[in-house]
């Protein structure tokens, strides 16, 4: 029985994989069927997860245990549900404001302490290993650190969209900014190239994994191996 269930699910996965692979020959009903199924199933599964793993442990269980503070999220949740009604949607602004206020503070704190300070510090500390390095390595480390620092600064300069309007109603950056932004452009091109290569690598791995699954499934269907 279990084996049969596993086999059925394998067939389902196999068929759905082929449905998506059929897109290689263009858009078709099989592909659309699979994507529609994905949307519906994902939404249903997500709803079940929210109910079982968010609302039950955080809202229902504390209320059943007599936790008075749980009434606050219950009240806010009730107000948030009014967003479903166009007429009452304004009542949902309060919990939305609460969420947005928390989210904004999280974004500020995270960006400031988690990325901005640490990355600036990291850019400065590039030269830290130089002090402990030997003479032969020192110049290499200095060059390497200087190269990375230049790239970081130049990339930041590239994103600075400040300029002056000339007579021809065209806005140009100052020559110094243009020079550094050109360098920054090259560094960004290299980084984006690495990202593109990574995307290709990831998708190729996914292709191999799906191809491997298809082969295993076929072997299972035909009892090979």
């Amino acid at each position: 029985m279990t084996l049969n269930t596993e086999l059925i699910w394998t067939v389902v996965s196999f068929v759905l994989t082929l449905c998506i692979f059929s897109y290689l020959f263009g858009d078709n009903p099989l592909f659309r069927f699979a994507t529609g199924l994905l949307i519906g199933v994902s939404a249903g599964y997500f709803a079940v997860i929210i109910i079982y793993q968010v609302l039950l442990p955080r809202l229902v269980v504390p209320l059943l245990q007599g936790s008075f503070p749980a009434l606050i999220p219950l009240f806010l949740s009730g107000l948030l549900l009014t967003k479903l009604s166009p007429r009452l949607a304004k009542l949902g602004n309060l919990p939305m404001a609460y969420l947005v206020g928390v989210g904004a503070a999280i974004a500020i704190g995270g960006s400031l302490l988690g990325t901005l300070f640490t990355q600036v510090e990291g850019a400065i500390n590039i030269f830290a290993p130089v002090a402990s390095a030997g003479m032969s390595q020192k110049w290499i480390l200095i060059l390497e650190g200087g190269f990375l620092l230049l790239g970081t600064i130049a990339a930041l300069v590239y994103f600075n969209f400040g300029g002056k309007e000339d007579k021809g109603n065209s806005v140009q950056r100052s020559p110094m900014v243009r020079f550094f932004s050109a360098i920054g452009q090259l560094f960004i091109a290299i980084t984006l190239g690495a990202v593109f290569a990574g995307v290709m690598t990831s998708t190729i791995t996914a292709l191999i994994e799906r191809s491997n699954f298809l082969l295993i499934a076929i072997k299972t269907f035909f009892g090979i191996g």
Partner: peptide
Amino acid sequence: VPIAGARGILIG
């Protein structure tokens, strides 16, 4: 090398 550009992007 991508660290330089990526760091600039992250800071931005």
